[in-house]
Design a protein around this nucleic acid. Structure first.
Length: 244
DNA sequence: GCGACAG
DNA sequence: ATCTTGTCGC
């Protein structure tokens, strides 16, 4: 699938936040495709020692849940991890992986937030918008928002709200296991996102495509253990302790 | 100033 | 997320 690149990735933190504000109005809220045939899961692993990033996208076919395609991309990080600016760290590698797919998935699932973000523009929103595909975020922990108790039974959920507005839901995919934070990305809505996550996570905590992408990411990292340690990175806004 | 803070 | 060894519970 082809992505539309509208902005550079090596930008200041202030400009990154500005880009998120500028792109947010382009997001489309809509129910996800009824019975998607292809669902992609995406995840990224890192090596702190080498500053390498390992991105993976796994496409599964429904209703069989068979893996039909898998792509891995390894790069050097060009942006640091900053809460609220995760997409600037992960999207470049993920976009490259998605562009190598032989066929476009019907829905994309990202390991991170969608609308449940300080500026309502998390990783799933950013990636989904650039790829112009229905997308949702399925994060393992909270970034923003408040929610009531989530009954300890598979299928239970509670709205995730940010000052009066529902930005997603906290969903229990397995009894006795921490719930996941689901929120719409592009061309999605909370209700259909929650239903898709529950359909894809029948046996494990995370949706199957995302879970397999995570495994792929760990494998990529493991296969790259011999890389020499990298020198200090020069990320945007980076300021050395002892200026030269 | 203090606490929170996806991966 | 990564680094890193062992340990608790189904």
């Amino acid at each position: 699938m082809k992505a539309r690149v509208l902005h550079p990735w090596r930008v200041s933190h202030a400009r990154a936040a500005g880009i998120q504000d500028a792109l947010r109005p382009r997001l489309v809220a809509a129910p996800l495709p009824k019975e998607p045939r292809l669902v992609a899961g995406a995840d990224v692993a890192y090596s702190r020692r080498t500053h390498r990033v390992y991105a993976a996208v796994v496409v599964v076919e429904l209703p069989s849940l068979e893996t039909v395609e898998s792509v891995g991309v390894t790069r050097t990080a060009t942006f640091p991890y900053i809460p609220g600016l995760l997409s600037f760290r992960e999207v470049p590698s993920l976009i490259e992986a998605f562009e190598r797919l032989s066929q476009a998935p019907n829905v994309l699932v990202f390991d991170g937030q969608g609308l449940a973000h300080p500026r309502r523009f998390g990783l799933a929103c950013h990636a989904g918008l650039l790829l112009d595909a229905p997308s949702i975020g399925c994060a393992k922990t909270r970034l923003v928002g408040e929610h009531g108790p989530v009954p300890d039974r598979r299928g239970a959920s509670a709205p995730l709200g940010v000052d009066g507005e529902t930005v997603g839901a906290v969903v229990r995919t397995r009894e006795g296991v921490n719930p996941v934070f689901v929120s719409p990305g592009h061309r999605a809505d909370t209700e259909s996102a929650v239903e898709l996550v529950l359909a894809l996570a029948a046996r494990y905590r995370l949706p199957e495509p995302q879970r397999r992408a995570h495994h792929a990411t760990v494998a990529l990292h493991a296969r790259d253990r011999d890389r020499p340690a990298a020198r200090v990175r020069t990320y945007p806004d980076f300021v050395p302790k002892r200026p030269r």
